[in-house]
């Protein structure tokens, strides 16, 4: 059993090619109940990616304007970094991951690769239609988070590949947005259902809206064709929300219909389904009445 701690991406990619290598970042998923679970890893070699500079940065892409977040960036950094003020829904999600101690370790890359149906940071990323970059000795490829996540604990990551960055498209930066989650206590908890929405209102009409729902399907999901029904919706400045209630409610209902949650020790499927309806409605409503952030960022 060896422990590798590369501080250059190229070395890490080389090491990742070895089939015995298990990648670890913050370890907050991998090392839960370690004494009971270590047996399943046998004689693996370990590679920590948390000190690789390329994976630690948060930056704006000069050409595209995309926000690029390195895979090893922690929830705490996302919650407190100036550039991330442009993605408040992701910050809201980062702030509910565990508590302070977990947020100091939990990485955005780990949250995605771990692929829990209830992963919180994944939900706004799906709403944003963010893209991940995957790198191996064979090269680098990109794909949307929406397709990267395949099922519980399943992703499109191939053996030997590292997730290096998450790219949030410029078009959602600074747009009104919101992440909401339903949990059951104020201590660390897991989402029963979560939802994220990002939208833009131009001249009193919705010009852009994307929604995602977490913990209700094997992976966080979006329904672009349903989101499209929000396009052009008139939400005049200061207008009472009841004017848009009908449309928003029907979007929420369609998300609930598409949800196929499980029944488990935390909640029943029926309840989760009903909560998808509630959270989607609230997330959209909250987003459409929440414009201050957009102005701040654009100014």
């Amino acid at each position: 059993m060896a422990w590798y701690q590369p501080n250059r991406l190229e070395e890490a990619v080389k090491q990742a090619a070895d089939a015995r290598t298990v990648v670890v970042c913050g370890g907050t998923d991998l090392f839960v109940n370690w004494a009971r679970r270590q047996g399943t890893y046998g004689e693996a070699d370990w590679m920590s990616v948390e000190r690789i500079p390329e994976l630690q940065t948060i930056s704006l892409d000069d050409t595209t304007g995309d926000l690029v977040i390195g895979a090893a960036v922690t929830a705490h950094q996302i919650a407190s970094h100036g550039l991330c003020a442009a993605v408040p829904a992701l910050q809201q999600a980062a702030r509910v991951v565990g508590g302070w101690q977990i947020q100091n370790r939990a990485s955005i890359g780990g949250n995605l690769v771990n692929a829990s149906p209830a992963a919180d940071m994944a939900v706004p990323l799906v709403a944003y239609d963010a893209v991940v970059a995957l790198q191996s000795l064979g090269g680098r490829r990109r794909m949307p988070v929406r397709t990267f996540l395949r099922g519980p604990r399943q992703t499109a990551l191939e053996p030997g590949e590292l997730l290096t960055e998450v790219r949030i498209p410029a078009r959602v930066l600074g747009r009104p947005q919101q992440f909401l989650r339903l949990d059951q206590r104020g201590g660390t908890d897991i989402s029963l259902v979560s939802a994220a929405a990002v939208a833009q209102v131009d001249e009193g009409r919705v010009s852009f809206a994307q929604v995602a729902v977490g913990a209700a399907n094997p992976v966080p999901f979006s329904l672009p064709e349903v989101d499209a029904s929000l396009q052009g919706l008139a939400v005049a400045d200061g207008a009472a929300l009841r004017d848009v209630d009908g449309v928003v409610a029907s979007v929420a209902r369609r998300y609930a219909e598409a949800a196929q949650p499980i029944s488990d020790v935390r909640a029943s499927a029926a309840y989760r389904t009903a909560m998808v309806d509630v959270l989607v409605r609230r997330a959209i409503a909250g987003t459409l009445t929440f414009r201050a952030i957009a102005q701040e960022v654009e100014e």
């Binding site: 370890g27 090392f31 101690q101």
Partner: peptide, 8 residues
């Protein structure tokens, strides 16, 4: 602060 039970 971090939890040392999850820190290799």
């Amino acid at each position: 602060p971090v939890v040392s039970c999850l820190l290799p």
